[in-house]
Write a protein that binds this DNA or RNA. Structure first.
Ligand SMILES: [Mn+2]
Ligand SMILES: [Mn+2]
Ligand SMILES: [Mn+2]
Ligand SMILES: [Mn+2]
Lengths: 144, 144
DNA sequence: TTCAAAGTGTAGCCGTGGCTACATTGTTGT
DNA sequence: ACAACAATGTAGCCACGGCTACACTTTGAA
């Protein structure tokens, strides 16, 4: 019942996958946050993201610059941040996945506060297969 | 049904928690791997860990040095790596948590290969409450 | 015994995501 | 109109986890 090919196995895959998940995690969380702020406030500034993630504005500026290189956002100096079509698509996909994970945790009986915290980390490591299953269970509602 | 305090909420907690999880992730995975290799081969060398994680031996050496500063392992130059008592405890806890997450994924109907990969990333973001619930569901066996 | 291969260490590079301190630009109220 | 303040940009630091290249030990076969 232990994970197949236990600790010493030549299984680079899981670790490489986890590392890759972490490299895309920032982009996903940022476009998701930008999308949400745009919806609720009409515009999204660097300072909004700094507050949202509880980091300095410098960290946000550098990350947003990379998002622009990745064609996920467009910005002009001293102007608010806009999402490209590509960015909007990624934001939508990220938000949907995030919500499925969150609702799944609620469905298996986790309290809302804990579910919100855990979902923020778990969401980036859920494969399409597992996400599908999470969605089914979430839709089925309460778990006996 | 969306996560409470959606995107624009002043909720630094989840992101800070996720970041903190990532800082402890390396230590947990390493002591878990060292423990497994010690069990299966009697000794654990830098090169074993490099193979296990599919990284260079340099990366392993530097990380092991930090584990030693954290009193999780003991090493002498050119000698195999040993776990301290503290290291053994963390290894055991990490392995148990890892296996609960893995078996939970199997219980909800995920195939073994996918479960093994997803568990590697998910395990570090599961709070004690959620872990408890995962354990219950895993023990309950198949999910209708 | 010796010496070649395997293992380990070290120097020095990169990208990412944190930070503080300071410079510059935009905006707004008086 | 302009001064003060908020927002943004820039310089430069750190820790972490990757890497290559090269130097040094250990070890085992010949
Ligand atoms: Mn998210
Ligand atoms: Mn997240
Ligand atoms: Mn692990
Ligand atoms: Mn993670």
């Amino acid at each position: 019942m232990a994970p197949p090919k236990s600790s010493t196995a030549k299984t680079p895959d899981p670790y490489r996958r986890t590392r890759r998940d972490h490299t895309t995690e920032t982009a996903e969380d940022y476009v998701e946050a930008i999308d949400g702020i745009l919806t609720e406030q009409g515009e999204c500034r660097v300072v909004d993201l700094a507050r949202h993630f509880a980091v300095s504005h410098v960290t946000v500026t550098r990350i947003v610059a990379r998002l622009q290189e990745a064609a996920l956002v467009v910005t002009e100096r001293y102007r608010p941040i806009q999402l490209t079509e590509k960015g909007k698509k990624l934001a939508t996909a990220s938000r949907e996945r995030h919500e499925i994970v969150y609702r799944f945790l609620l469905a298996i009986g986790i309290d809302a506060a804990t579910a919100a915290i855990d979902a923020e980390g778990i969401e980036h490591h859920v494969s399409p297969r597992t996400l599908k299953r999470f969605g089914e269970i979430a839709r089925a509602g309460q778990l006996t």
